[in-house]
Nucleic acid binder design. Structure first.
Length: 555
RNA sequence: GCGGGUGUAGCUCAGUGGUAGAGCGUCAGCCUUCCAAGCUGAAUGUCGCGGGUUCAAGUCCCGUCGCCCGCUCCA
């Protein structure tokens, strides 16, 4: 990875943001080649997802896939993030165990509150109420619910031992009551306890007395601290709570917010998709691994809306296409996998999520996420409908029973949504990592096997030597290539130094083809073309070069 | 946020408290008819940043920032 990072800097793919001031943690800039590489990646996505979705392939409904673009603001109304769940989800106060360095969400701390002596009659327990206000629990455990806490306590010997529990038995009545009781023997304390979440005021005021969920020790916990995972700023001149706005943590919400506007303005019919690319911001706790986890990053997201009955088919369609797409631009090897999420990994509203994952040098032998393809149900539109009080359902005139006049009665529903959400910075990094090749047998061992479609330098034109009329011919050829391919990437020319050195430079920059004007060119109007990956050369007519290159670049 | 490592030229790295170094790369000239060739020359550094100790600090001490690794987190 160090070698890849060195090459990225040396050749101008990636620089550290604010480099001359020592850099700023979690932010990276793209140099000339990186900027063009990422632009090529973004445009490939735009082309294959929106303008000609899925390469013109028919969807599961047998029809051409239809998508439209959208471009939405980084700053949205604060209620957007309430509706999406980001404000709640990104703002959880955390507690640290200073001794074990363990950290957990404050609202996930479950406490055992003494409510009676050891093994008291159940009726007595039911009659009492645990005082969680001022009291501190005798023991704690990290779990998202009291039930889960009891599960852990009963079934994990190791945890029992660490917390100093000798025996523990569940006293939870098998009635409709959901009050969770346990009888616990901790040696110096035998008690009946009710299991309840430790309230925030207790954690804040008496955190030193609350036992650690990892060791049972007191005085090792910090008070709950806010880790703001969303960036915020202020609108207008006055800085106060009312003027506070967030920088978006994802581009997708901009799409849901405009679902109705797009339907009303474009004559799109379900099923269809809306694509959106742009910067998003997350105040990551630990930015790490080069550009992989940055605080400012770019996403390319498609929200594909369809009828609930067809959603599973569309989910599989996009999942498989997205995998194929990444393969098509150069991530063709074993380093790319599609991983279906386990049931317990899914969000509560999702009935299927897959990740396209790449084996980065820093994740190996594991994988890192490039893109998530999620079946989001109708969660987002429903949330926005509830919070905005604007109807976000869709009237589908192709459904419902057939009327006497032959038309359909129609059906009103909130569409389901399939979301392929890709990280462009992660994509660009994966392309570089996959392309990075070291072949000690070559004169220039280090090179980038970038796919021609994404390569920032599309071709180079060299005179073999800088004399005898060769530079003039090369210049003319370069002009022709520039006119035709200049808008897709760089066309390089270079006449200085040895031809080997010039080839080597192009190899490192990932330029797929070099055209060289030599002595024979002047006689028979042919040039050599050198293939970056094999080093092999063939000779083609000078006039044929633009067409030859166009074919290789797919342009 | 915690712990460990690290920071010297564009890159990779040497450097014992006493003049700032090498290789590669870059640039210029010569040479050169296909793979980082050769010759000659040149530019490039607040030694991450800020304090301190010292006659003297790249070197020792303190702080801070960045990067890497391990925790933690990861819609």
């Amino acid at each position: 990875m160090d070698a890849i990072m060195a090459l990225c800097k040396r050749r101008g793919f990636v620089f550290q943001a604010s480099d001359i001031y020592g850099g700023i943690n979690g932010f990276w800039d793209y140099g000339p080649l990186g900027a063009q590489l990422k632009k090529n990646l973004r445009e490939a996505w735009w082309q294959d997802m929106i303008m000609n979705p899925a390469w013109g392939r028919k969807g599961p409904n047998g029809e051409r896939v239809r998508c439209v673009p959208l471009e939405t603001c980084i700053i949205q109304h604060p209620k957007v993030w309430e509706a999406s769940g980001h404000v709640a989800g990104f703002n959880d106060p955390m507690v640290d165990d200073k001794e074990t360095k363990g950290r957990f969400r404050a609202d996930h701390l479950q406490g055992l509150y003494q409510i009676g002596d050891y093994e008291s009659p159940l009726a007595d327990l039911l009659a009492r109420t645990a005082s969680t206000g001022g009291a501190v629990p005798v023991c704690t455990v990290v779990a998202s619910s009291a039930g889960e806490a009891i599960d852990q306590l009963l079934n994990t010997r190791k945890l029992q031992k660490e917390l100093g529990i000798r025996t523990i038995t569940s006293r939870t009545p098998l009635t409709d009551s959901t009050r969770p009781f346990v009888s616990v023997d901790m040696g110096n304390l035998k008690a009946d306890c009710e299991v309840l979440a430790v309230p925030m005021p207790t954690l804040k005021s008496r955190f030193a007395e609350v036992p650690s969920p990892f060791t049972g020790k007191k005085g090792v916990l910090t008070e709950p601290r806010q880790f703001n995972l969303m960036f915020f700023t202020y609108t207008g001149a006055v800085f106060n709570e009312e003027s506070k706005v967030h920088l978006r943590p994802e581009t997708a919400q901009g799409i849901f917010v405009h679902f109705k506007n797009v339907v009303d303005s474009t004559r799109v019919k379900i099923p269809f998709g809306i694509g959106n690319t742009g910067r998003s911001f997350r105040n990551e706790v630990t930015p790490r691994n080069f550009t992989f986890r940055s605080r400012e990053f770019e996403q390319a997201e498609l929200e594909f809306f369809c009828h609930p009955d067809e959603s599973q088919d569309w989910y599989r369609f996009w999942r498989d296409f997205r995998m194929e797409w990444w393969r098509s631009i150069g991530l063709a090897g074993e380093n790319l996998i599609l991983r279906e999420h386990e049931k317990d990994e899914l969000s509560h509203y999702s009935c299927g999520t897959s990740d396209v994952e790449y084996r980065f040098p820093f994740t190996a032998p594991g994988f890192g996420e490039l893109e998530g393809i999620a079946h989001r149900g109708n969660y987002d539109l429903t949330q926005h409908q509830t919070h905005s009080k604007v109807k976000l359902d869709y009237f589908d005139t192709t459904r419902g029973e057939t009327l006497p006049n032959g038309s359909k009665k129609g059906e009103r529903y909130i569409p389901h949504c399939i979301e392929p959400a890709a990280g462009l910075d992660r994509g660009a990094l994966a392309l570089i990592c996959e392309a990075y090749t070291v072949d000690p047998s070559r004169p220039s061992p280090e090179f980038l096997k970038l796919h021609p479609r994404v390569a920032p330098i599309k071709a180079a034109v060299f005179p073999l030597v800088d004399k005898d009329g060769m530079p003039e011919v090369a210049e003319k050829l370069a002009d022709a290539l520039f006119a035709r391919f200049g808008r897709h990437g760089f066309i390089e020319t270079d006449a200085k130094q040895s031809i080997g050195k010039r080839y080597a430079r192009m190899d490192e920059a990932g330029c797929p083809y070099c055209f060289t004007v030599d002595g024979d060119t002047l006689k028979d109007q042919t040039v050599t073309v050198r293939d970056r990956d094999t080093g092999r050369q063939e000779r083609i007519g000078l006039d044929a070069v633009p067409a030859w290159l166009g074919e290789r670049l797919g342009l």
